[in-house]
Design a binder for these strands. Structure first.
Length: 564
RNA sequence: GCGCCUGUAGCUCAGCUGGAUAGAGCAACUGCCUUCUAAGCAGUGGGUCAGGAGUUCGAAUCUCUUCAGGCGCACCA
């Protein structure tokens, strides 16, 4: 868990704090209150490795010009026993820190030591966190929104894992309630229509009109024949649902597995009814006085908890709503299973539920801040520059399996994690399929393959990567080498940032940047050179880049080919 | 009508808790393969950060407002 950026920032932070105290003691500055010191990486290289704006922040308190404050601080700054090489005042009052090269060379030692674990940090402290994602309705196939949610949720879970959380991936199977009822009626209608003709049974208006319902019943008939025509409606619907639901859930599992996603838990909504937790939850809310009856339905006073409207918990027909089960589900996550934090990933079409869900959390005595709901904007699929609504092959709505048929898992996972959850995403099928420089996933993989190729070539001549204690790392001085080293050093901080902001897309962009710096290095510097000392140092550098690219791609579950 | 999200280069998007000259990829144009993979690199052009007002040393970033687009406002999930 070596984080060199953090080490450097801590040293700088320390130096600033001490310098402020000394300046105050020397009466060059009045007593000032220091908030958290902001240390950032300047955009311009000439501004050093790190910079701080403290001098500007305390301008008002100190009643001095920012540049003057900065000068005073620099004069008191003790740099011995640190990686800081040079400090200077710049611009309106920034203090810029230049670090010794030795600091950067430490990165290679860290990567050598930690290998496949380099990048892991422990801000999570093994806290139990659940990421619930996709949770597609098992009454039909998964759509593009599920595909995005899958890539996003799975990669977020990985990022949190690397950040030191104890992560559980969960899929919530909506196998109870109203939609299963509709599913049953739809299946029944298709069964009868298939056997006795379209007019034999009216198809319910609000039923599931998809072709997949017919497919289920065709296969069912192939297995069981027409014997269910004479069975009583309730019973045969149950048989149909049991048959189709299992098939759908198996398909969900298979599709998601093919997509690189394996859940720790497939949690069934029906369990909440079987264990009576839905009723318990409703009773609890009623005891607390958070419900009321109106027109024979039971309502939750969501408006008392900041929502816009009250919500029905139990319909006038006595059947609890999805929302009632969802409250019980979240109570189960926090209270029964003891998760300390829960992240739900929802499509943008569900954003209206956020306020009431958070309100319900409060009502059942859970801290709403421990529930993070990530609202993911919807996906538009493009093909030939136009919005594609239908699959080429089936002519139906494009499903996750259609997508994976047209493109690759690597491309899909990468593309869906290039954008933040909150941004509307256009998925360009042609681009994802194209095996060209336009396709960013190849760009990263190509960098990895190129490095492997160099290493293999040298290995054939008996030249192997050596451990850092045998190397003269100070031979790495070219700008392209320095930039690479810096980028390598940033990985732990990037994981921290991605985990805290819950945005795995930051990691995707990180690895793109790293690949870009490697390609620049490749064109500017040769590894295989006459000067053996230099060659060995560079070989170590590219091997370290290889490890970091591989670590990140592993984290995102994207393959890292050794040849392309 | 109300609520949430979005608006940055021709296109798709970055821009981390406000910071120094607003970036990348694609597209366009110009160069670079007899030496480690050209799925690559280097360079050029391209911007009223949707418009307006405010907050302050300093705003793409925060506040207000107008405009445009997406989504949601069920005893559906």
């Amino acid at each position: 868990m070596i984080n060199l950026v953090e080490i450097a920032k801590n040293q700088i932070n320390d130096a600033i704090e001490k310098s402020v105290s000394k300046a105050i003691a020397a009466q060059q500055l009045p007593q000032v209150q220091l908030d958290e010191i902001v240390i950032e990486v300047p955009r311009e290289k000439q501004h050093g490795d790190f910079a701080t704006n403290v001098a500007m922040q305390i301008t008002r308190q100190a009643k001095k010009a920012p540049r003057m404050i900065a000068d005073i601080l620099i004069n008191h700054m003790a740099l011995h026993d640190t990686y800081i090489e040079k400090v200077e005042v710049a611009g309106p009052g920034f203090i810029n820190f230049h670090l010794k090269k030795e600091w950067l060379y430490q990165v290679l030692i860290a990567i050598e030591k930690e290998g496949a674990d380099y990048g892991k940090i422990n801000i999570g402290n093994n806290q139990k966190v659940m990421v619930e994602f996709v949770s597609a309705n098992p009454t039909g196939p998964m759509h593009m929104g599920n595909a995005r949610g899958g890539a996003l949720g799975d990669c977020l879970a990985s990022v949190l894992d690397w950040a030191g959380y104890d992560v559980t991936r969960e899929f919530y199977v909506n196998d109870a309630g109203n939609q299963i009822e509709k599913f049953g009626i739809s299946l029944e209608a298709r069964y009868i229509q298939l056997l006795k003709g379209e007019d034999a049974f009216p198809f319910p208006e609000d039923g599931y009109h998809g072709e997949d319902i017919k497919d289920h019943m065709r296969d069912f008939i192939a297995l069981e024949g027409d014997k269910y025509l004479d069975v009583e409606s309730e019973e045969r619907k149950q048989a149909f649902v049991a048959f189709a639901l299992k098939r759908n859930i198996d398909k969900l599992k298979a599709d998601l597995k093919a997509y690189g996603i394996e859940y720790d838990v497939w949690f069934h909504e029906s369990w909440l009814y079987e264990s009576n937790e839905v009723q318990e939850t409703i009773d609890y809310l009623t005891e607390k006085g958070y419900t009321y009856k109106d027109e024979d339905a039971l309502w939750f006073k969501a408006t008392e908890f900041g929502a816009e409207k009250d919500v029905v918990l139990v319909r006038n027909n006595g059947i609890p709503t999805y929302f009632a089960a969802d409250i019980a589900y979240h109570r189960n996550k926090f209270v029964k299973r003891g998760f300390e934090r829960v992240i739900d990933i929802w499509g943008a079409d569900h954003h209206g539920h956020v306020a009431r869900m958070k309100g319900a959390m409060q009502a059942i005595g859970c801290d709403p801040d421990k529930l993070d709901i990530i609202i993911m904007q919807l996906v538009r699929l493009f093909r030939n520059g136009e919005i594609a609504r239908m699959s080429k092959r089936t002519g139906r709505a494009v499903t996750l399996s259609d997508l994976l048929e047209e493109t690759s898992v690597d491309a899909a996972r990468f593309f869906f994690n290039m954008r933040q959850a909150g941004s509307h995403l256009d998925f360009d099928l042609d681009l994802a399929v194209s095996q060209s420089n336009e396709n960013p996933v190849y760009y990263v993989q190509y960098a990895h393959a190129r490095i492997c190729s160099i290493i293999n070539l040298l290995a054939q001549e008996g030249i192997k990567v050596q451990s850092t204690d045998k190397l003269n790392l100070s031979r790495l001085i070219e700008p392209e080498e320095i930039e690479l080293l810096k980028k390598l050093a940033e990985l732990p901080e990037e994981i921290k940032g991605a985990a805290l902001s819950m945005e795995p897309s930051r990691i995707t962009r990180y690895v793109l940047d790293l690949a870009s710096l490697f390609h620049s290095f490749y064109n500017a510097c040769r590894v295989k050179v006459e000067d053996e000392e230099l060659m060995m140092a560079r070989l170590k550098l590219v091997d370290s880049v290889r490890i970091v690219i591989k670590n990140v791609l592993n984290m995102l579950k994207i393959s890292a080919p050794e040849q392309m």
